[in-house]
Design a protein around this nucleic acid. Structure first.
Lengths: 338, 338
DNA sequence: GAGGGGACGTTATACGTAACACTTGGAGGC
DNA sequence: GCCTCCAAGTGTTACGTATAACGTCCCCTC
């Protein structure tokens, strides 16, 4: 037995098995076919098991010059959406012998600080979601392979992007409401400087503008139930004809809108229709259940990781947005004719 | 300029500054007081900036034998609770030059698989929440310093534990309902084999048993809105007198209970009172707003990290549970006298 | 003017691993 | 009987960093 105060190294294993350290490395690295006899290999494995040997990752990483670890930068962990993204990414990563480390930007959605101070681990690459330009350039400065999630395909400084087809989701929401007969619409917009939210506003306005007689108003709100409550209440008590539908940038905002409507004595969907985006568990916890756009978070994570692996191997990542789906529930109905 | 194909090393910086590699290490490691002149130090810093030098973490970790990285094992990221725990832990960690890596157990709350395959990073220690015995022993086998969150203080194999005083929260809920006059109570219990949930059931039963004439029924449910819906519906349509209050093991279960009650045509709190536990954003998104127990997730994370730092430094971690607070909202009221 | 001691560095080494380049003993071919 | 070839390993090196141990000057003191 080697001295038990410190962790056993491959050299300890070698000594216990009566072979050289190189042989241990070959056997445990599964590169011994035709180089080491089966009996010797088994002896080495036995010794490793006996000593409870675990390779020193720092040494391996230094030697190999790579870590098989990637960083997933997510805006926040306040919904289950990014749990799904992580799950998908980790699943694909595991299949390729990679690990995924999570960096939740502490400030919530918005500019992230320094993703590298958090994980002292050396990294092979980064998947980043909804990040502001400063953090992005910090990463680029590090020359690390990068994949951006839900980011401007044009303005990403050449980084690969993987996007959900949220533009299509917004279009589906618009079509749905127009088909029901809504013409005065309030857009409860996430008050966050991010491409994805700007794009949603653009897409919604464009689609509604195609139908004459429609009217759109925008209420910016921080992504929280309280923030959405305040913004919605203010927008609905403003002078002028009341909107008949509220389109929310995400389900959490919709929950705030529900509260505002209740407080104003308005009923969903009889007085006002409401739509969300994400299809969180929250969507079906609300009463009435929320009409929203379902995003496949796990597939999103899988595609993100696959794209990063492609970049790491020098291949061209696949293109094409991930489809989304409108889920019609009880929160939307035709407007009451006044 | 060094060859630009590869990342600059401290040796490249040394050459650029006209000093030895050791001098670079001293200056950049801030250990140069009285060993290197101010002008030379500045020259080194300038060269490092110029080349965009970033130290190789793998090499540093190997040399120092530690990584200043700890792993936070959380059961799942499906609520904002563990976002708070992470935020608190990361804040304390940053103050001590540590990083926190997150390992979300993919199976949700319950036994975790192999926390080490996920993060290839070498680790100095682990903070683990609500884990089953198998994962725990895997970690212990690794000899890594360990702090358990919300775990049995007796049965943790000697690991340090940091707990929220959930037992007190459950007692407060029981007192509140008893004071309102409730005597027939349904416990909607998380169907997860974990000490924290067993303890809640025990504590609730014990407190209620102290008052004669009380009756408690238990309905186990998976922690999801759908699961809680099914379990609650079954329990409330069972023969016998209907419970007048539902005590839920967490807010998510409470959301499911709300749905079941709506479906059965029962109103909260007029027909049935409901309580939760966690005080998530969801609690105030529900209608009526949920009476629940507020847990200070960030403080929980801070205390967990502080305990781990104590263990790492050979100190004794502080003891004492973190207080919790009953938040009375609109979901509880006296039972209607039949 | 001998010697002590700061100020300012440098040289050398080890951390644990993976992989390249060798060695050795024997079997087989001609 | 000599050469070749292969199986089965071993010796050595490098990855990039932090630090202990070791040199120089040169000034200051006795």
């Amino acid at each position: 037995m080697a001295r038990s105060s410190t962790r056993p190294t491959s050299r300890d294993v070698a000594q216990a098995a009566g072979v050289s350290q190189a042989a241990v490395s070959l056997v445990l690295g599964d590169k011994w076919r035709g180089r080491v006899s089966e009996t010797t290999a088994e002896r080495v494995r036995e010794a490793a098991r006996e000593l409870g040997y675990r390779p020193n990752l720092a040494a391996r990483n230094l030697r190999l010059g790579r870590t098989r670890t990637v960083l997933l930068v997510v805006p926040a962990l306040t919904t289950e959406f990014f749990a799904g993204v992580y799950t998908g990414a980790a699943r694909v990563a595991a299949r390729h012998g990679f690990g995924v480390v999570l960096y939740p930007s502490p400030e919530g959605i918005g500019p992230a600080r320094d993703p590298f101070a958090s994980a002292q681990a050396a990294l092979d690459g980064v998947i980043a979601s909804s990040m502001a330009a400063d953090a992005l350039t910090a990463i680029r400065g590090d020359q690390l392979p990068l994949v951006m999630l839900d980011s401007d395909p044009e303005g990403s400084l050449g980084a690969a992007t993987v996007n959900l087809d949220i533009a299509d989701g917004v279009r589906q929401v618009a079509e749905h409401l127009l088909a029901l007969g809504h013409r005065r619409i309030l857009h409860l917009a996430a008050d966050v400087p991010s491409w994805t939210f700007e794009m949603r506003a653009r897409e919604l306005a464009a689609r509604l503008a195609a139908v004459p007689g429609t009217e759109i108003r925008t209420a910016p709100a921080p992504i929280s139930i309280e923030g959405a409550l305040t913004a919605t209440e203010a927008a609905l008590t403003a002078p002028g004809p009341r909107p008949t539908a509220v389109v929310c940038d995400d389900d959490k905002l919709a929950a705030g809108a529900y509260k505002a409507l209740r407080r104003l004595g308005l009923r969903v969907p009889d007085d006002v229709s409401v739509t969300g985006l994400d299809d969180l568990a929250l969507a079906t916890a609300l009463d009435p259940e929320l009409t929203t756009v379902r995003l496949d978070a796990e597939l999103f994570g899988e595609r993100g990781m696959e794209a990063l692996l492609a970049v790491l191997e020098g291949r061209e990542p696949e293109h094409g947005d991930i489809p989304v789906e409108l889920v019609v529930r009880a929160s939307t109905a035709p407007p009451r004719t006044p």
